[in-house]
Design a protein around this nucleic acid. Structure first.
Lengths: 202, 202
DNA sequence: AGCACTATTGGCGATGTGTCAATAAGCTCG
DNA sequence: CGAGCTTATTGACACATCGCCAATAGTGCT
């Protein structure tokens, strides 16, 4: 008997209930792919009727979008304090910061980018794209090119973020690269881009 | 009346029928995400009972895997003739070759690498990973490091392939970068990696 | 023409999803 | 403290899709 006390209905504040269901959904979507998670699973684990999930989140995909949004929003906090120093130092520290965050929340981050790194659905793509945009802007600021960047420059920065995501996945999932190797790869790539490619797209 | 002649059943060789259904499936999965394609759609467009699709391909996901496999296999042909010249020249030509292939089959290639909305499925990942491995090996050969590469080196090469895929998607889907800019980004990135990062992982 | 082989069909059962009227939990007010 | 009201929550209905399998009917062969 899993839910001894919930034999009887319990009425929660909408915000509380919503957040509770969301946390359960995060756990489920974080541990297996979208198609293998049913709203029934989420509802059961939340001790709630399935209809309530739809009531709070609309469709299943909407719930999933909310989950991905949360998973991707965690890392992007506190990118604010930019370190001082010359370019190589700043590149180093932003890469280090990225790897820290990513390895700390590795499971959820992998789920979000893995499900999203290859998104097929338009809405999912949109959510990922927004997170990538934020990260790309952060990179440009970190390397001192963040003042009114051209569309082309932002696009190139997004490409670099793609490299970072891809490499971090490679690192965390396959485990053949060491952290130092990953760090070196990302840092020198960034420096090369800033030196020789970004200037072409002022 | 769409299928005037197929009002009556027609019996085909298993291979022919299989390929016909597969081509229809490619068209469908190439134009919209996985979840929005039903086996009923495919069967109807192929002028065939839905059960036959399962008979030839098993489950819907199996059919999808077959489709992705085909889409990804197209580009990887004819990577054989490696150009002569010094390193920058060879890097240039492999990048150019990649962009040629990718832009020629842009729609199907985008669908395949975008992975059609199958969020994080293990089997789909596997298929993509194999294609990436092949491409990564090609890159290493092109830059003259293809003889018995270490696991770490292959991992780094996969990272570069990730950058290439990501950047090509950025190029083809958003259209803010020019081909020359993409080419420059990928070529100089590759050179930087070969110069300063790959040597660390002999 | 009749027969055998098998490609092909059509429907059954199971699973999942979105919706909506009905229900009851918990607060407020007399 | 009980009645009533608000609304969080339920349960079931309708619909779509999928995998499966026995029945059916092309098609070549004797």
């Amino acid at each position: 008997m899993v839910h001894a006390e919930s034999m009887r209905r319990r009425r929660l504040e909408p915000d509380a209930r919503r957040e509770q269901i969301l946390s359960v959904a995060i756990r489920h979507f974080g541990s297996r792919p979208y198609a293998e998670v049913s709203t029934t699973d989420v509802a059961r684990d939340a001790g709630v009727a399935r209809g309530l999930v739809n009531h709070y989140f609309g469709t299943k995909k909407d719930l999933y979008l909310e989950v991905v949004r949360v998973m991707l929003t965690v890392p992007e906090v506190a990118l604010e304090q930019l370190p001082e120093g010359d370019l190589p130092e700043r590149a180093d520290s932003i890469v280090g910061y990225f790897l820290d965050v990513v390895s700390r929340h590795s499971t959820s981050w992998l789920a979000a980018t893995g499900a999203g790194g290859m998104a097929g659905d338009a809405d999912v793509k949109q959510v990922i794209a927004e997170a990538v945009d934020v990260a790309a802007a952060g990179v440009l600021r970190a390397v001192g090119m963040g003042d009114d960047p051209s569309p082309a420059l932002r696009a190139m920065s997004r490409s670099y973020v793609g490299l970072a995501i891809w490499t971090a996945q490679e690192w965390l999932q396959r485990g053949v690269l060491t952290r130092d190797q990953v760090h070196a790869l990302l840092a020198t790539s960034l420096l090369a881009l800033v030196d020789r490619v970004f200037p072409q797209a002022v």
